[in-house]
């Protein structure tokens, strides 16, 4: 008994185990156990847009920005599931915005057509642009996605193409903040639950396998670059949508759509919320964006603050808030002396 060391043991709560199968719906308590976290996510998002009279248009707009960041973060998270680290979500965002501006202003299409069209065509163009990089491993994807939107921004600024620093204005308006919020909330739900479902299918399994070990996937008879391209296309959709939608919201799109903020915010949101779960992306965005608004009085020091938060999460709590909370909800922990384990 000289050196008894302890290890932390995690055991599923009884209720977690019981609610794993279909019979959970037979008991109210267990149904509530399953529903509670989901409602915690859904109810505030559905109720918030109705509270405009109480909290004012300013915070409703903050809410809208949080939804934009959510979509960009969802996109980021899907890319990360295939092992692609994007440092330039602004690329998708900006492309979506400029595409819808073109469709709306030069072809005169209404937002109901121009936004979906810009979403799909923007995602296709981004996928084509990035396709050559997909054959390469490592941080290459990150370097390229980081550089392209920033270079685009400098190009637009210097050469005055695409409306230059002024941007393209006069886009067709959307029907009003409440409707806009509900559309975005709906899209965010489709994104979160859809992607969670997708990544659990056999198809999603193949995508995750590519991140683990692309060589073995290829040896399994699967065209890795082609699957990566599909993932990029799917991931680009929510982001180009967000860009197109916001362009119509402000009725203007400018080169700031390619700015670093739209790359850093979603990245930070996922890291805070926890990568790989999609719900974490949503959670992170709704922690980060309001936080960043309240820190606005500190000027650029707030950027320093969330860089530090980012660091703390990356180094100290890489699983993120969502997985942390999920674990606490589903399991209890206790310390077990190592010898007791050995005897068993």
């Amino acid at each position: 008994m000289a050196n008894v060391s302890y290890r932390k043991e995690r055991i599923d709560r009884g209720i977690k185990a019981r609610t794993d199968d279909i019979f959970a719906i037979a008991s109210l308590q267990e149904t509530l156990y399953l529903l509670f976290p989901r409602l915690l996510l859904i109810v505030p998002l559905v109720v918030f847009p109705l509270l405009q009279g109480i909290i004012g248009a300013y915070w409703e707009t903050v809410f809208l920005i949080a939804l934009v960041v959510t979509l960009l973060a969802l996109s980021w998270d899907l890319l990360a599931s295939v092992g692609l680290v994007s440092l330039g979500q602004a690329l998708f965002y900006g492309v979506g915005g400029y595409f819808t501006a073109f469709l709306s202003n030069y072809l005169g299409l209404p937002p109901l057509i121009s936004i979906p069209l810009a979403t799909v065509s923007g995602a296709s163009v981004c996928t084509l642009l990035l396709y050559p990089v997909l054959r390469l491993r490592g941080v290459y994807f990150g370097l390229i996605t980081f550089a392209i939107p920033l270079l685009l921004m400098r190009t637009i600024e210097a050469t005055k193409i695409l409306g230059g620093t002024e941007g393209i204005s006069g886009l067709a308006p959307l029907p009003g903040l409440t409707v806009e919020l509900y559309v975005m909330v709906a899209i965010a739900f489709v994104g979160v639950f859809g992607l969670r479902r997708l990544i659990d299918t056999d198809y999603g399994l193949v995508l995750r396998a590519i991140r683990d070990n692309d060589r073995s996937v290829e040896a399994g008879g699967i065209n890795v670059p082609w699957y990566k391209a599909q993932a990029v296309f799917i991931a680009a959709l929510p982001a180009t949508f967000a860009g197109a939608f916001i362009a119509h919201h402000y009725q203007v799109v400018g080169m700031s759509a390619f700015a670093l903020d739209y790359s850093v915010l979603p990245l930070t949101a996922v890291v805070i919320g926890g990568p790989g779960s999609f719900a974490g992306a949503l959670l992170g965005a709704f922690v980060l964006v309001p936080l960043s608004e309240t820190l606005r009085q500190f000027g650029t020091l707030r950027v320093v603050i969330y860089s530090v938060i980012l660091l703390i999460f990356v180094v100290g709590l890489p699983e993120g808030i969502f997985r942390f909370a999920q674990r606490k909800y589903q399991q209890f922990e206790r310390l077990v002396p190592m010898e007791e384990v050995a005897k068993e």
């Binding site: 680290v85 890291v271 980012l310 660091l311 180094v315």
Partner: peptide
């Protein structure tokens, strides 16, 4: 992923600190 994010965060923190 974490390496890139960590160095990037350090970089942004340094720059924005000087700005502040």
């Amino acid at each position: 992923l974490s390496e890139v994010i960590a160095t990037f965060a350090v970089g942004v923190a340094i720059l924005e600190f000087f700005r502040w």
